[in-house]
Design a protein around this nucleic acid. Structure first.
Length: 118
DNA sequence: ATTCTGACGTGGG
DNA sequence: CCCCACGCCAGAA
């Protein structure tokens, strides 16, 4: 079992902030990696958000399936169990998805820096 | 040390 | 809208 040793406090905050934002995403809505990164000050660019989500595996508290890329494409589905668990989880929340692409993405999109108005 | 690879995003053409 | 190059930063080889 590999442990993620973080060099500094900022890294730890970054991880936890990612998780906090993810938890705040309403059911049936989604956001993007970039939106979260932006909300957090874009300190480490959007890729790190995906990295944080990856590290959250097994953490049922964190709805990582509600985070997609900026096009509304489920690029992270291969990191979930089975073939399309991510899609099914979203569909259970009422999100319409065709071929890994969220339909009416603009309506379903939830921007933390906008909705949370911090 | 060096290079490549991403759950990414932006800007130019 | 699509394609491409580039910036991003942590990990793996």
């Amino acid at each position: 079992m590999k442990l993620y040793i973080l060099n500094n406090m900022d890294e730890l905050n970054f991880f936890e902030k990612c998780y906090e934002v993810a938890k705040l995403i309403p059911s049936g809505r989604v956001t993007s990696y970039g939106a979260i990164a932006k909300y957090l000050g874009a300190a480490r660019s959007a890729r790190m958000v995906g990295w944080a989500m990856n590290a959250s595996h097994g953490n049922i508290e964190i709805p990582a399936h509600r985070v997609v890329n900026r096009k509304g494409l489920l690029t992270g589905k291969h990191h979930f169990e089975g073939k399309n668990l991510m899609q099914q989880l979203l569909e259970n929340e009422g999100v319409v998805i065709i071929d890994s692409q969220i339909q009416e993405f603009e309506k379903v999109f939830w921007d933390p820096s906008k909705e949370l108005s911090l």
